[in-house]
Computed example of a mutant assay.
Amino acid sequence: MSETAIEFTDVEKRYGDVRAVDAISFSIRKGELVTFLGPSGCGKTTSLRLIAGLELPTAGTVRIAGENVSTRAASERNVGMVFQSYALFPHMNVIDNVAYGPTIRGGAKKAAIERGREILTLLGLDGLEKRLPSELSGGQQQRVAVARAIVQQPDVLLFDEPLSNVDAKLRRRVREEIRDLQRRFNLTAVYVTHDQEEALAVSDRIVVMSQGKIAQIGTPQELYDRPSSRFVADFIGDANLIEGAVSQNAFTVEGLSLPLPQPAPDGPATISVRPERIALEKGDGVSKIRTATYLGSRYEYIVDTPFGTVLVSAPISLAPLDRGDTVKLGIAPGGFTVVEHA
Rank of each mutant, 00 (worst) to 15 (best):
Q152F: 12
Q141G: 06
L158I: 12
T219F: 06
V190S: 05
Q211V: 10
P227R: 00
I206S: 08
E177Q: 14
R226D: 11
A149G: 00
Q141E: 11
F159C: 02
G212K: 05
E177N: 06
Y224G: 06
R230L: 05
S134K: 14
A145R: 07
Q211D: 15
L157D: 06
R230D: 00
R172L: 15
P227M: 11
D195C: 13
F185T: 05
I214A: 05
R183P: 05
R171F: 10
V208T: 03
T219Q: 07
E177V: 00
Q182E: 11
R230W: 05
N165Q: 11
D204M: 12
G212L: 04
R172A: 15
Y224N: 06
S164F: 08
P162V: 07
V156L: 02
E176T: 15
R175F: 07
I214D: 00
Q216W: 02
Y191M: 08
L181N: 01
R143T: 10
V166I: 15
I206A: 10
L170F: 09
R171P: 10
D155Y: 08
Q211K: 13
E222N: 03
E135A: 15
G218M: 09
R148K: 07
Q142M: 11
E222Q: 14
V208A: 06
G218Y: 01
S228K: 14
Q153I: 03
R184W: 13
V144L: 02
L187F: 11
Q140P: 13
V208N: 06
E135H: 07
E161R: 08
V174N: 09
K169S: 15
R172E: 15
S210I: 14
Q142S: 13
A168I: 13
N165M: 01
V146S: 04
S137N: 02
Q216I: 10
V166S: 04
E176G: 15
R179Q: 14
A147T: 09
L187N: 09
Q211W: 11
A215H: 00
V144Y: 10
V174L: 14
R172P: 12
D160R: 05
A149D: 07
V208C: 09
Q182K: 09
R179S: 15
P162R: 03
I150F: 10
R171L: 10
A168Y: 09
V166A: 08
Q142G: 05
L223G: 07
R183A: 12
D155Q: 14
Q216H: 11
Y224P: 04
G212Q: 07
L223H: 00
E177D: 14
Q221H: 12
D225R: 14
D204F: 01
Q196T: 06
D204Q: 11
A199F: 04
L136H: 03
Q142I: 08
L200Q: 03
E177T: 14
E198G: 02
A189K: 00
V174A: 02
